[in-house]
Each structure stands twice: as C-alpha cells, then as structure tokens.
C-alpha cells in the first residue's frame, strides 16, 4: 500500500487537471494511462492504492477496464470519472465493483472527499 494513485483518462488535459488536484491535496500520483489497456498494464506493475478511471476512452473503455481490474484484484479501489448522462454506465461500474464515482467537470473538494473516504 501507499503506492499512490493511478490516473486514467484519454485526454492529457484532464490528466493534468486531476494530477494537480491530487498533488495539491498531498497525494502521490503513481502513474497515468490514456486508455483501458494501458490502465490494466499499469495497475499490474504499479499496484496503485487507488485508480481514478475515466469511462469514455479509446482502445478499451473504463467499464471493461474496471471489470478486468476487479477480476484480477477483488480489493481494487477504483473511482470512476464520469460525465453527466452516463448514469447507466456508472451503475454498471458500481455493480462491477467500483467504489465511488466523480462527475466531470471535477470539483477538487469532491474528488478529494471521495479519495479520503477510501484511502484516508
């Protein structure tokens, strides 16, 4: 534990925004991935404490990536990053084991609150 947080989003812009939010709140960023496949690969190698996982991505979307991650690590802590209008997908993710979700556009305190509840 204590390996930091993995940020997964296809937009470099969003990754940068999230990274800054995390760093400002004193969290460590384990790494960044731009699609689902990379997320799974990095999850295996970095063993992050928590994953912030975007839903809409190329290659493999967040829903499938989440399922794969949960399959490999039942205790994985994954927070989905979604947008309005993705309700059904978020529910699917929660049923698949996502611990929480945050909605774009991100409010820093919401993001941090959600992370605090999971990893303190």
């Amino acid at each position: 534990m204590g390996n930091g947080i993995l940020i997964v989003d296809d937009a470099a812009f969003m990754r940068m925004v999230i990274r800054d939010i995390l760093v400002k709140a004193g969290y460590e960023v384990a790494g960044e991935a731009a699609d689902g496949k990379e997320a799974i690969r990095l999850y295996r190698t970095l063993k992050p404490e928590l994953v912030l996982l975007d839903i809409t991505m190329p290659e493999m979307d967040g829903v499938d990536a989440l399922k794969k991650i949960m399959q490999e690590d039942r205790d994985a802590k994954v927070i989905m990053c979604s947008a309005l209008g993705q309700s059904s997908m978020v529910i699917e993710c929660i049923q698949a084991g996502a611990k929480d979700y945050i909605v774009k556009p991100f409010q820093a305190d919401r993001v941090i609150e959600s992370i605090r509840k999971l990893i303190g």
């Binding site: 812009f13 969003m14 309005l84 209008g85 774009k104």
Partner: peptide, 28 residues
C-alpha cells in the same frame, strides 16, 4: 461521440459554458 464527449468534459472543466452546451448537445 467520444470526441464530442471529451471536448465537453474539457470545456466544462475550463468553465467554457457555451462550448460545453454545444458539445453536450452534439454528444446527445
């Protein structure tokens, strides 16, 4: 869909409301 969706998220984060609205409707 994906591109419109990403643009919407980015515009929303930056606070560009008009752009967000338009991309949102395109995404819909």
């Amino acid at each position: 869909f994906r591109a419109a969706h990403s643009l919407k998220g980015m515009a929303g984060t930056m606070g560009f409301k008009n752009m967000q609205t338009l991309t949102h409707d395109m995404e819909n």
